[in-house]
């Protein structure tokens, strides 16, 4: 009779090694997640995004109705009402594109009281056309120089023209 474990011992050990490596990789990922999404940061504050509109680059102002779809050649901007936030709270607002949240323009971080003149936040991809896809506009509270809480968010879709 063959000892049950003999033939599979090397295979089992290699598999356990891979399993441990897997746990380490996932633990690093989890640690990174907790670092960038620190728990216990809820303040109950919320910002107000009044809408997303067409944006005129020459005048720096918005036009038209609130929309959730734009074309790739159509500049757009979000309008934020900062007045509902305590002036001393450090906040920022920005556009993010795609599943991996590429930064696509924004304002801050700065005290909410100083951002009154930045109520319009245009998307800025460094080019005249924007890649098609989902865009997210997020207002964030900062602590120790990095975002720790989302105070408001909205999503629009850019479609090929």
């Amino acid at each position: 009779m063959v000892a049950a474990a003999d033939e599979t011992r090397a295979i089992f050990r290699l598999l356990v090694g891979l399993g441990i490596a897997g746990v380490v990789i996932l633990a690093i990922g989890l640690a990174q997640f907790v670092h960038f999404e620190p728990p216990g940061q809820r303040t109950g504050l919320s910002a107000r995004i009044t809408g997303v509109y067409g944006f005129d680059r020459k005048t720096g102002s918005t036009f038209g109705p609130n929309r959730d779809h734009f074309r790739t050649d159509e500049p757009f901007a979000a309008a934020v009402d900062w007045s509902g936030l305590p002036p001393a709270v450090v906040v920022g607002a920005g556009w993010f594109s795609g599943g991996f949240s590429l930064a696509a323009g924004g304002v801050g971080p700065a005290g909410a009281g100083t951002l009154g003149e930045h109520s319009v936040v245009p998307v800025n991809f460094g080019a005249r056309r924007f890649p098609a896809g989902r865009y997210e506009f997020v207002v964030e509270r900062y602590a120790a120089g990095r975002p720790v809480e989302v105070l408001a968010r909205t999503t629009i879709v850019v479609v090929g023209s």
Partner: peptide, 15 residues
């Protein structure tokens, strides 16, 4: 939908 855009959200997407 409740996460901060950036590394944390990217890690969550990968998970």
């Amino acid at each position: 939908a409740g996460l901060i855009p950036g590394p944390g959200q990217s890690v969550a997407t990968a998970f």
